[in-house]
């Protein structure tokens, strides 16, 4: 008999496993991805959800028996990917 071990990672940046995610959904009865993001930290690391948020939404939909169209993704914000702060000093402000 093969003994399985190892983590199935959901959010690679914040080290949140699929198991932990599903457990939180069940324990708190959460239907909102926003609340799970704030509780577990999924989607808040350097990749900002590029690898986890869609997968999390579909997992949530499956687990709660709701349609993916009823699961709202978390809010996307600039920057599209991390850039050095020092570059922004040279951003043109100009007149507005």
């Amino acid at each position: 008999m093969v003994k399985f071990s190892g983590k199935n990672i959901l959010c690679f940046c914040e080290d949140v496993t699929v198991e932990e995610f599903l457990e939180a959904v069940e324990k708190y009865g959460i239907k909102d991805l926003q609340l799970l993001k704030r509780l577990l930290g999924i989607g808040t690391g350097p990749c900002q959800g590029k690898q986890c948020i869609v997968r999390a939404a579909l997992l949530l939909a499956l687990k709660k028996g709701i349609k993916p169209s009823n699961v709202r993704l978390t809010t996307f914000r600039p920057p599209s990917r991390p850039i050095p702060l020092g570059v922004l000093i040279h951003g043109e402000l100009g007149e507005e």
Partner: peptide, 9 residues
């Protein structure tokens, strides 16, 4: 789409 298996990282 990321892999769904143990030690997928």
């Amino acid at each position: 789409i990321p892999g769904n298996f143990r030690n997928n990282d």
